[in-house]
């Protein structure tokens, strides 16, 4: 669509600007403020320069949380993206069954995040949960509050359960946009199923898949509630991801300076990924237009 230049449009976006600025800029300034100051208590603060940033960059705790976070995000992407594509390829193309699948698949996406945690907390318990009980019955030692591997497995499977449908729905939307003529042409060429996927479906899905990957990466990068409810970050620190660590630091120990410095670096990473996301989105828009 060819847009006209109109500076008065600013009046239409002004409410949004003010509202979001109130919720975003003021808190962010508070964080910046804390990140460069130190205190001996009694609300007396003094300038501390970039010492907190240096501290955080050398802090083993933060690096450990970051590596855990990257491992987590990497693992769930490695599982959810192929699985989501696979599910999307197997979904009914139209009719009542397609609607039925769409509704059931969307269900986990609409559940409050702490309830997702609660569901898996219950589901994995050896005494009252179906999963825990079954694993115990067939002789697998499974205790997500004590065992490192069990905790990670639970958190990963939970995320796969929660979010694979999102990838599948996006991939499905991409598949729906492929004209039938493409498949007919492939059939005339006697293309194999793999060739159809590789040369027709995958390129056509590339845009939405990029969105899916970025969304899942970003949302998993700030995951807090679900693993916190299930494992509380434990056993030890083994499932303490970035957000969990940050909240522990800021609200639990009230280490405002380090937490603020941590927040800002965290925010910058997100900003960077957002920019990639934005570029992908706008390029996609241009291609469609």
């Amino acid at each position: 669509m060819n847009k006209t230049v109109n500076q008065k449009a600013w009046f239409l976006v002004l409410p949004v600007l003010l509202l979001v600025a109130f919720s975003a800029v003021i808190p962010l300034m508070t964080v910046v403020n804390y990140s460069v100051q130190d205190t001996f208590g009694n609300n007396v603060f003094f300038w501390n320069g970039i010492a907190w940033f240096e501290d955080m960059l050398e802090s083993e705790r933060m690096w450990a949380a970051l590596w855990r976070q990257l491992a987590f995000s990497g693992l769930i992407l490695a599982i959810e993206i192929p699985l989501g594509i696979y599910v999307a390829l197997n979904m009914p193309k139209s009719g009542i069954w397609a609607s039925f699948c769409l509704v059931l698949m969307s269900l986990p996406l609409l559940i409050p995040w702490n309830v997702v945690g609660t569901i898996w907390q219950i589901f994995g318990r050896v005494d009252i949960g179906l999963l825990g009980h079954t694993l115990d019955a067939i002789g697998i030692e499974y205790n997500y509050t004590q065992n490192f591997y069990a905790a990670w497995a639970t958190v990963i499977v939970m995320d796969v359960w929660h979010w694979t449908s999102l990838v599948a729905l996006l991939a499905y939307a991409g598949l729906q946009s492929i004209p039938d003529a493409y498949y007919q042409a492939a059939k005339i060429d006697q293309a194999s199923r793999w060739a159809v996927f590789r040369y027709i479906e995958l390129p056509k899905m590339a845009g939405v898949l990029m969105i899916a990957i970025l969304l899942r990466f970003m949302d998993s990068f700030m995951i807090y509630t679900e693993p916190f409810v299930v494992t509380g970050g434990g056993p030890g620190n083994s499932t303490t991801f970035l957000s969990i660590d940050l909240v522990k630091m800021a609200l639990g120990q009230f280490d405002l300076g380090p937490a603020a410095a941590f927040s800002i670096m965290y925010y910058l990473v997100i900003l960077l990924i957002s920019w990639v996301f934005y570029t992908v989105m706008t390029n996609l828009d241009k291609r469609d237009a």
Binding site: V20, S23, A24, I26, P27, L28, T30, V31, M218, F221, M222, Y224, L242, S243, I244, L246, V247, A250, L251, L256, A259, S263, Y266, Y267, I270, L271, I273, S274, F277, Y278
Partner: peptide, 14 residues
């Protein structure tokens, strides 16, 4: 967009 992507944990205390 960046605000949609911002981690809530960063904003909790402020």
């Amino acid at each position: 967009l960046t605000n949609r992507m911002a981690p809530p944990a960063v904003f909790a205390l402020p």
